[in-house]
Each structure stands twice: as C-alpha cells, then as structure tokens.
C-alpha cells in the first residue's frame, strides 16, 4: 500500500486539476486598446487564469480559463468580449 498522509492536502501548483481550458465553450477576448488597466478582471477571475504584466496589462491563460465570463461581466469599459469556441 502506498504511503498516504492522514488528511488530504494539496500544495499550490498551477493546473493541479488538469487543463481546465478544455471545459470552455466561450473564450474571453481582451481588447487592449479599450483596457484601462483597472485589474478588476484579474481580481475577479475565480481561477487565477488572468495574468498581470509588469505594466498592469492583462492576459488570459487559455490553458486554464474555463470561460465563465466573470471577467467580461466585471470589466467597466466592456473591453472583454465572450466569443463562442469553434468546434
């Protein structure tokens, strides 16, 4: 029998639940020309799938973004559009 700890513990690691980007039916597209760098999308993303650059520009990590659309909903300048994934 393999050694198991007393209780179930996971250390933080990127994508420990697998490539959740595969679950997505719609993808958020960020229009950087409209973006005001308020970082609300980065704050609200429940999966931490939006990365913040040194200049506060934002980028979606499509490997793990599940396409929930919260970022698009929160964006105060409507710089994020949800686009259906092509099959």
């Amino acid at each position: 029998m393999p050694e198991v700890p007393v209780t179930a513990i996971a250390r933080p690691a990127k994508g420990s639940a697998g490539r959740t980007g595969l679950w997505r039916t719609e993808r958020p597209l960020i229009d950087s020309s409209k973006c005001v760098k308020c970082l609300l999308c980065w704050l609200y993303c429940p999966e931490g799938a939006i990365t913040r650059g040194e200049d506060d520009s934002v980028e979606v990590d499509y490997e793990y973004c599940k396409g929930c659309g919260i970022c698009a909903n929160e964006c105060p300048v409507k710089a994020i559009e949800m686009v259906p994934e092509a099959i």
Partner: peptide
C-alpha cells in the same frame, strides 16, 4: 505536522482521485 501554516500555504480536504480515495 499537517495543521494550517500561513508560511507554507496548502489546500486541505482536496479532491482524491479513485486511485487514492480508498487509502484515506
């Protein structure tokens, strides 16, 4: 040893796959 330690962040009661659940 497995108590919450803010200097060593971990998730507790996480998912266990069919390969590990039975052992718990």
């Amino acid at each position: 040893p497995y108590w919450i330690d803010v200097t060593n962040p971990r998730s507790y009661g996480t998912i266990a796959s069919p390969e590990t659940y039975m052992e718990f």
